[in-house]
């Protein structure tokens, strides 16, 4: 009976956490729609999540696009399909790799930073101080970050898609002998509006998940340095899993229904 009880307890704990996160998400969304709004905090979050993430997003995308071109060329050559490199790089980057990699990089960079910052605020009583200063922590800390992430991560995904395709283009035209004009023409002609829409939608959902998990785990951090460390780790793990699960669901919704 003991293993069953342990399993049951773990399942119940997991369900309880999902419930708490869902309630936190509803609370955050409801606060987005109600004043007061903290414009300066929102702009600061836009800068931190968007502008300062550009270098890591760009580097991730360019290397992934280049590697993808090499893989498709090498794999395609086994059945004389080397010519499809532009099309597969474009569809692979825009539909799948662009959003997922940008989402995961945002989870690594932004979720961790949000969770650590808010958790530190919690253990140093800064969140209590906010309350005593008549400022709702959800409005001041969570809403600006979540809203900024929802708006700016799709833009990062768009930039990542373009840079990733450029990475594939650079490798294909530089080392694999593709004609530059034909490569661009094939890329543009092959992509459909739905590919781009799905990519940007995934970006918005992943941004929401990444910021939400950072805020939730930060606000619910344990005490001390260990509490902050655990909150940060759990937030990044949670964000990554949520992003990959949402990617699976959204891919199904966009391309199979």
């Amino acid at each position: 009976m003991k293993p069953l009880a342990l399993l049951g307890r773990a399942v119940l704990a997991a369900l309880a956490m999902i419930g708490r996160i869902a309630l936190f998400a509803f609370d955050a969304v409801s606060h987005i729609l109600r004043p007061p709004f903290y414009g300066r905090e929102f702009l600061s979050a836009l800068m931190n999540i968007g502008w300062l993430s550009l270098p890591v997003v760009g580097l991730t995308a360019v290397f992934t696009g280049g590697a993808l071109a090499l893989q498709i060329y090498a794999g395609g050559s086994r059945f004389n399909a080397e010519a499809v490199v532009p099309q597969i790089v474009a569809v692979g980057m825009v539909r799948e790799l662009g959003p997922v990699l940008v989402g995961l990089m945002i989870a690594a960079r932004v979720t961790s930073s949000i969770a650590a910052e808010i958790a530190t605020m919690k253990v140093t009583e800064q969140i209590d101080a906010l309350v005593t200063l008549s400022t709702h922590p959800m409005k001041y800390l969570t809403v600006p970050r979540v809203l900024a992430a929802v708006l700016v991560v799709p833009l990062l995904v768009g930039v990542g898609d373009i840079i990733g395709i450029f990475g594939g283009y650079a490798v294909a035209t530089g080392t694999l002998g593709f004609n530059p004009a034909a490569y661009i023409r094939n890329t543009v002609n092959f992509l459909e509006p739905l590919d781009v829409i799905s990519s940007l939608t995934k970006g918005a959902v992943f941004g929401f998940a990444a910021a939400l998990m950072g805020c939730y785990h930060g606000m619910n951090s344990g005490r001390g340095a260990m509490g902050v460390g655990r909150a940060t780790k759990t937030a990044v793990e949670g964000a990554a899993i949520l992003i990959l699960a949402a990617n699976f669901v959204l891919t199904g919704v966009f391309f199979t229904l």
Binding site: T124, E125, Q126, D128, A129
Partner: peptide, 10 residues
Amino acid sequence: GMLFQGGALF
């Protein structure tokens, strides 16, 4: 108004 133990400055 409240003065916190560690200051709790932002």
